[in-house]
Design a protein around this nucleic acid. Structure first.
Length: 638
RNA sequence: GCCGAUGUAGCUCAACGGUAGAGCAACUGACUUGUAAUCAGUAGGUUGCCAGUUCGAUUCUGGCCAUCGGCUCCA
């Protein structure tokens, strides 16, 4: 073994003694850096890691993405140490970092509550002050199992038993130790800016049949300033919560008598219906035909479709009252696909009819578990911009293309920059052969690539009847919600025995594609409100223009302007109350009205308006005709 | 459904084992207004619901309902 090695730091090669730590080498040979970890030959390691071979060494700063991740992971350890110190008998499980923070799942004698957080935080600060060295220890797997077994950490034992490597690494700080791959900060004193944010229940290994653990969420940053900035951002995001905006803007409300079922007030209904009208215009261009289908079906339909088996617990069941035994022999539809299958089957179909694209804004009801409801984004009563495409297997690729183009057009038009696509692949329970699945997954993947979409795999998350494209959009707090979806279905046509006559006169089975672009309108509106902070594009704004009068003397003129705007097809009103202009402006701003037309005696005399735009700094004077023309020039997305 | 929390006037929030209060909104009046809140007055509540403890419960306890943060599920 050579006693000298060559290390490259900042592009300069140094010859040094083997065995110095990465931290020492960086301190001596790199200029003025204060790393919390190091990257040696591309691999993240502790600063204390000895370097024993030729290597390129880079510092990892607390501010770098990897550094922040290490900081958060180390803070999770710090929290676990504090928790086990304060609550003896608590077992540790896992504590990963997540976007913007970390969590750690514990098995405590009694679940934690938010009241425990300040106590834990102050114990963490004590441990930071104690400046405990964080040391890596490697040992054979069996030895680690014995160690954690002696500590009665049964979850850790289970985790290590699942690790294939023969040696595992542990990290020790003070008298506390945890299994961990690392790396970590050199000492607890590096952890200066953290906050515990919430507690939650979480199932061991994410399975609801397992024990419920007690999870504590927290976050950490390289500096107090960065932490405070993050907390400020969270505050701002909460101001954009669609539930808050819905109340403030008078769009919708909920009543405990219909849990999970929004009531859309007149203004909210405008947004809802404008989105539907937008989709209808697109349908004309993209070749969809809208249909209207029943709401309630005999259970026989759900047995045929498979919903009885797969979805019954999420269905509202009912009866027409004529059933002598009092059975719930009808089900309220949770999806439109069975109706469309019946519609397909209502006529003899030829290959010349395909693709048949049936669109449906029908109302759907799903008995979602009570704990899962969430404002407009997770509801029990909803409509989707739903459609089912019946086509031949050869037509699938074209249809996927068509729908991906539609997705792009819609999300661009509505200003969603950051949509996330995933390909849900073959689940454990599936119909069809692995080869068929791989080929069909490739059809979807190929279509996404062809249309210039990046996507990730969502392994095993396809439907049992076929793979699917899932499109996610984030809310104000970066939670992802699935909106658009495109799913291939080879099962439903089978169950309903759907057929078409092929060109050769033979019988063939069509493929069914389930797809939605906005997804559920309720959810979409929720996410859209959070994206726009309620400042909607002109065509979606519930009230597009409001005339603000300065005094009683111009009441008539104000009313006339609103009337002219309404006659031109706009949603307009006049505020002729006895209030100061500032007050009226403020209310119009809070209602997010795109245009405010201020009129006083000056404007009335000149038949003009003083135009103020929403969130506008200054006003602009223009003639009444020019103003109406300006409204008319506002674009529709299509 | 599970874990934790919350529920007081339309909204945002106080208070408390002994008759529940503010700001905004609503209503009435005055002011006649120039680009994000004019002033004054009036009215508004079985403190989510149902039990229990207590001389007395909005407050303490239990159950239920709803909501919020997560988990699971999912558009």
């Amino acid at each position: 073994m050579s006693s000298e090695i060559r290390v490259t730091i900042d592009g300069v090669v140094h010859t040094v003694a083997s065995g110095s730590s990465a931290g020492e080498l960086l301190r001596q040979l790199a200029n003025g850096v204060r790393p919390i970890a190091a990257r040696v030959n591309g691999k993240l390691v502790d600063l204390s890691r000895p370097v024993t071979e030729d290597a390129a060494i880079e510092p990892v700063s607390a501010e770098s993405p990897e550094g922040i991740d290490i900081l958060r992971h180390s803070t999770a350890h710090l929290m676990a140490q504090a928790v086990q110190t304060l609550y003896p008998g608590t077992q540790v499980t896992i504590g990963p970092t997540i976007e913007d923070g970390f969590y750690y799942d514990f098995a405590p004698p009694t679940p934690f509550t938010v009241d425990d957080l300040p106590k834990i935080e102050s114990k963490m600060r004590e441990l930071v002050k104690a400046d405990l060295k964080v040391q890596r220890v490697e040992m054979p797997r069996q030895e680690a199992i014995a160690l954690f077994d002696s500590m009665r950490e049964k979850y850790k034992v289970e985790i290590i038993q699942g690790i294939p490597e023969e040696r595992v690494s542990l990290y020790r700080q003070g008298d506390w130790v945890d299994l961990c791959r690392g790396p970590h900060v050199p000492s607890t004193r590096y952890l200066k800016a953290f906050k515990l944010t919430s507690v939650a229940g979480a199932y061991w290994r994410g399975d609801e049949h397992n024990a419920m653990l007690s999870r504590i969420y927290g976050t950490a940053f390289p500096s107090k300033e960065a932490l405070e900035e993050h907390l400020r951002m969270l505050e701002l995001a909460r101001a954009r919560d669609h539930r808050k905006l819905g109340r403030e803007m008078g769009l919708f409300f909920f009543d405990p008598l219909a849990p999970g079922s929004p009531f859309f007030l007149p203004k909210g209904a405008i947004i809802y219906n404008q989105l539907i009208e937008y989709m209808r215009r697109l349908y004309r261009r993209y070749g969809f035909e809208e249909v209207i289908t029943p709401q309630i079906f005999k259970n026989q339909l759900w047995r045929t479709s498979g919903h009885w088996e797969m979805f019954r617990e999420n269905m509202f069941l009912t009866t027409d009252g004529e059933n002598a035994a009092g059975e719930l022999d009808y089900g309220v539809k949770p999806m439109n696909c069975p109706s469309h299958a019946l519609m397909y089957r209502s006529e003899k179909r030829s290959y010349r009819d395909l693709p048949l694209r049936l669109a449906d804004f029908g109302r759907l009801h799903r008995a979602e578990r009570s704990g899962t409801l969430h404002g407009l984004t997770r509801v029990r009563a909803m409509s989707q911009d739903d459609a089912h495409i019946f086509c031949t297997e050869d037509q699938i690729a074209d249809e996927i293309d068509r729908n991906l183009r539609m997705v792009r057009e819609v999300y661009d038009a509505l200003g969603f920059g950051a949509i996330e696509l995933k390909l849900g692949t073959m689940p454990d329970k599936h119909l069809g052969s692995v080869e068929q699945w791989r080929q069909r997954e490739e059809v979807l993947g190929g279509a996404m690539r062809r249309n210039g979409f990046d996507f990730e795999l969502n392994p095993g998350e396809g439907a049992f009847y076929g793979p699917k494209i899932e499109i996610y959009v984030p809310d104000a707090l970066k939670r992802k919600w699935q909106a658009a979806t495109i799913q291939l279905d080879f099962n439903m046509p089978e169950r309903f025995d759907l057929e078409y006559t092929a060109s050769a006169g033979s019988r063939a089975r069509p493929v069914m594609i389930h797809r939605a672009v906005l997804g559920t309108l309720e959810r979409f509106i929720g996410v859209l409100l959070e994206h726009t902070a309620g400042v909607l594009p002109f065509w979606l704004a519930p009230e597009q223009m409001r005339v603000l009068s300065l005094s009683e003397k111009v009441e008539d003129y104000a009313g006339e302007i609103a009337r002219l705007a309404r006659e031109a097809g706009f949603r307009a009103s006049a505020d002729i109350r006895n209030e100061k202009l500032g007050f009226k402006v403020r209310e119009a701003e809070l209602a997010r009205i795109p245009y405010m037309a201020v009129v006083g005696e000056r404007e009335a005399a000149a038949r003009a308006v003083s135009l103020r735009r929403l969130r506008g700094e200054k006003s602009q004077s223009l003639s009444l005709e020019a103003f109406i023309e300006m409204l008319k020039a506002e674009p529709l997305p299509c």
